[in-house]
Amino acid sequence: MTRGAIVAPVVADRLWTHRLCDHLEVAIGSPDRTLVAAGGLGGDGMIVDATSGTINAEVAEHPLGILSLAWSPDSEVLASGGQDGVVALSHRDGGRSAHRVGGWVQALAWSRDGKVLAVGAGKHLWTWHRTDDRLVDHGPQPSTITDLAWARREPLVGLACYGGVRWFAVAGPEPVAPGSQPTRTLDFIGSLLCLGVSPDGRWAASGNQDATIHLWKLWDRDELEMRGYPAKITAVSWDATSQLLASNGAEDVTVWDVSGAGPKGRTPLQLSGHTSLVSSLAFQHRGALLASCDGASIRLWRPRLGTRQLGQLEAEDEGFAGVRWHTDDRTLLVGGAAGRLDAWNVRRAR
């Protein structure tokens, strides 16, 4: 193992490295913590044993690039979507299927019970129903679906589009009529780029092209808009307590505290250190650490305790393209601008 250039009070040891053929932003751990799946813009992808780093299987190839990956909650099925307009399903037992849906498959999200996979493909919402292997096209939305998220308290999937979030009830046993109207809409005149629902199901946050965050309290009519970012917001991440919302859109990471009455009137935390726009960020799934990356560095923070940076990794032979915590919350999955995939074990410095 190679010791990373991370500084106290946390250090990182490299566990394993692989290489895809081009830019890699999407790497995710399986819910059972045993596997990591990664897919790059070169169109290739792999499923790796999280501990040993051994390649377990190839992800179905998506010529022109893999844009999205999602593990089913039972870790049995990996869904992948690409610029080729195909959503592919790789089953743990080796079974595979591929469905042509058209458009760029930018977003995939499994329902909490794992029975329904929601697919954002261009302007169309599709769902794949696992129990009867049924694929349903819910018809075109008014604009391209940029992100998807399931509500926590109701069986609704939210679609981020231009004009707001459109919530559909697609998880029920009955087939959903194509072209059906949304069950709810959260309106906002602007182009939504990413969507995050807080783990407690209380909030939905969108990052927007016009350099704002829009925050809705689900399900009443309360909404807030956070302005003042220098650039569009392409990444938001909730912490496990649903109290902190981290966002990019600047060289600083901005963290809003939504506890109590909400963030209105509060000044957000500004985590400073990056030297160019933050491209990717993620809170741990259950812990309090936040990882953020620009092309040159990955930085670790614990916003609950303040703005102090806890550690840093410097890019080596290629820039960083994306960072995500593995589901074990100890391993940092790092994608490179030329296709490199690194797994780093993060621990306290002795």
Partner: peptide, 18 residues
């Protein structure tokens, strides 16, 4: 697929291609 968005920047003719 041409997708024209208005921007919320106070500029009434500011549309972009999403």
């Amino acid at each position: 697929e041409e997708e024209i968005f208005e921007m919320n920047n106070g500029c009434i003719c500011c549309t972009v291609r999403g």
